[in-house]
Write a protein that binds this DNA or RNA. Sequence first.
RNA 1: GGGCGAGUGGCGGAACGGUAUACGCGAUAGUCUCAAAAACUAUUGACCGUAAAGGUCUUGAGAGUUCGAAUCUCUCCUCGCCCACCA
Length: 882
Amino acid sequence: MKIKNLKFKIKPRYFPQEIEPYWQKVWKEQGIYKFSPASHKASRGKYYNLVELPYPSGDLHFGHWFSFVPADAHARYKRMSGFNVFFPNGFDAFGLPAENAAIKRGVHPKDWTMKNIENMTKQFGTMGTMIDWNFTAITCLPEYYRWNQWIFLKMFEKGIAYRGKALSNWCPVDQTVLANEHIENGCCWRCGAEVIQKEVEQWFLKITDYADKLIWSENSRVVDRQPRFSNDARSSFPKKQSQTRSLSESLSSNFKNKPNKSATAFNSSQSELTPSDQNNQSSINNQQSAVDWPKEVREGQNNWIGRSEGMLLEFKIGEAKASIEVFTTRPETTDGATFLVVAPEHEFVTSLLNIKDKISNIKYKGILEYVGGAKKKTEMERKEDRTKSGIFSGAYVKNPVTGKDIPVWVSDYVLAGYGTGAIMAVPYADERDREFAEKFDLPITETKFNAKPKGKKRVNYHLRDWSVSRQRYWGTPIPIIYCHNCWESKLKIKNEKLKIEYGRTYIEMDGQEYAMVQVPLEDLPIELPYDVDYTPKGKPPLGTDEEWLNVKCPKCGGPAKRDAETLDTFFDSAWYYYRYVSPKYEKGPFDKLRVKELLPVDVYFGGAEHTVGHTLYARFFTKFFKDLGLVPFDEFASKRVQHGVILGPDGNRMSKSRGNVVSPDEVVKEYGTDASRLYLCFMMPYEATAPWSTSAISGIYRFLKRVWDLQYEIKNKKLNIKNGLSKEDLSQMHIAIKKVGEDLENFHFNTAVAALMTWLNFLSAKKEIAKEEYETFLKLLSPFAPHITEELWHSLNPSDNSIHLESWPKFDSKYLVADKVSVVVQINGKVRDSIKIKNQKSKIKSYVEEEARKSGKVKRYLEGKEIKKVIYVEGRIINFVI
RNA sequence: GGGCGAGUGGCGGAACGGUAUACGCGAUAGUCUCAAAAACUAUUGACCGUAAAGGUCUUGAGAGUUCGAAUCUCUCCUCGCCCACCA
């Protein structure tokens, strides 16, 4: 494709503000970044380059630039290397900020969001990326969330989506659940009432069903994110035992924590993943077997899932038939259990308070007070308060091993949501239990670690089921209808057994019984009504819209009610990268064939904050889709790359309240897009966190000006464009080609730019420069600075294609070696001299040794000394041990 | 408390068993200029040598392995991120 309408008048001064918008417009008109799914058959294969989709907060900030720009440079490099690169983007458009803004400023969440999307899309334009916006997803549009609802119904059918109860932040005055960010100092942000923890019924996704599948096994491919040292032992599995044990470990684990025998199970087979030179890159693409996620993510997720195997033990209450069930990972210590501790929310405590006449009044008050206090504690307060607190319940249970009666205590150091909400305390063996025992003067008896109590084996997870319903307006409506008539007519009788049997599709609300009826797939989407009072009113906003709420039951036609809650936005973002491949697809959430063609994602860029949130949910959805037969692979992304953070110039996180926000718009206005892009790539390693530096970007700007001036001089014949290249010229060029390419391949953007600077320093110092050098330089720079390179490319070759359609230059190893190598001479490991040796002769140790001995400095050190040993590393170093 | 990671010039960082401080910023001196900015040139880890030559030290602290360690091992210190009473 030829680019027409070229103006190639050479301007003496680099003026990015003029050329950048020009080329952005030309690229758009010419469609040079259009992705065609079919064309990868002719190329080296597809390459799905994905960046976490942004939330449309209003303005693009440097956080966005830092996620997208290096990712774009990588994508451009991949494209020039012959891959059919798919680089889409969209917006994660539902969520609380829109509602907050709406309440604060009186703008409708939808209008606010869509306006932000429009603005940010424009701002994306100035970033100069190769994103193809024909493939996109905006999650707040019915054409997208329709498929959220579809997926939700599939999950409901499979029993993955269910109604359950969990503790939530509750405002007793507003009668509503509160988000953490809506709690200020333990009080509701609107009415100021004290927030309590309350059991609230809500929708859950049974992610725990997939817990085992989500654990990264030791057998999964483990590669350092940036495999610089392919045969280095450091990239093998960690020797220290992490908190979460792997499956095999857990099976064989015992209380004494045997050393992990499988620690050395693998550490080889990495060479093929070492980034590739130009000839073997394609082999790792599109193969599910090569899953390469950073260690910190894999271990973070495994710890979060927290699989532990143990036992359920029953402790009988006195002589009664009732008992308290505890979960323990160390049943062999049961002989040392001297008391039980239950969570304040435990049903034993609740029932205790219901039969208050059986215990003394004072005691009852104390327990009631303690439980009430615990419920008031927000998560933050519990974190701050590290001293153990608790109260004796007045009850005793029988230790099943010793037969002794032991007291039952209530304490909030036991969590209601984990295990059974009750533990047996073994103060002899457990530090927390000992601390508690010492504080309340409870007995500590030795355990022999060989008790064998009777109980059921049980696997427990730290991971909880995912609560997905929200009492908010700006989200996906849940496609369930509650019908009283269906329940009555279907079952005719009220029968407790049936209720249990049909529990999954039966619900009680406000004293009424309902059947849960799915919205038929053909009725989707259930559109979010526009005119709704979304200010907090004691119930979910959609619950106030009677017209929308009351519907005919799709089953019986009788009066029924919609579910008034909306889905967590993490639901939206758990599968958007599937929608990207076929955004207009009508027959399902995505085109299965297209997905098979383009997924898994080859590289997924994003922030470290999503280690145990978003990326885990996305993996969960993928495994669910696989079970539905929608996708043929287990992992949605073959590689994950996490970036760091750009801080404000003062070293703090950029925030409006600190007044340290650097705006991309202004930096672009002053230095241009290319300088901003290059700066972000250059200033620090991609995964690092470092402050913005205004003076450093002016240095980058200087670099681009020098690139520009090189051209100016060529055109004015100040420099001759010669044809022949010296060996040194060739060597410098091929070193740069190799270094920049490998660094782009491995996400070492900063050193790639440094290599370009080094080569420019070399080129600038020369009297003459070759056209080949100049063109190669522009190509190597083009992924970072697409505008200036395009402009200069066309001023040199006015009728040519876009530089971005050129191929990546190839290096030839034969140019990488210089004529002479310098060999460092060491005496006992200390550098004393450096000698030049002809390349061919550097292979001969005796020759190098002889040359080294000739050096005056070396002579002085060797005089009168006995040489024990001479170590020679070819072409690098010679060490005399004396 | 747990997990993960990081400590290298004045600053961002490079090197990841083989010449530590690449590249950039900043700083100093010079050229140009009425002057400034910009640009260009030179110097720039510390110390001794007031110049040159030369030497000594230096990658958070200490030990170890090695002919050779910023890099590998151990102990300790500091900082960052994530999670947090997980039985």
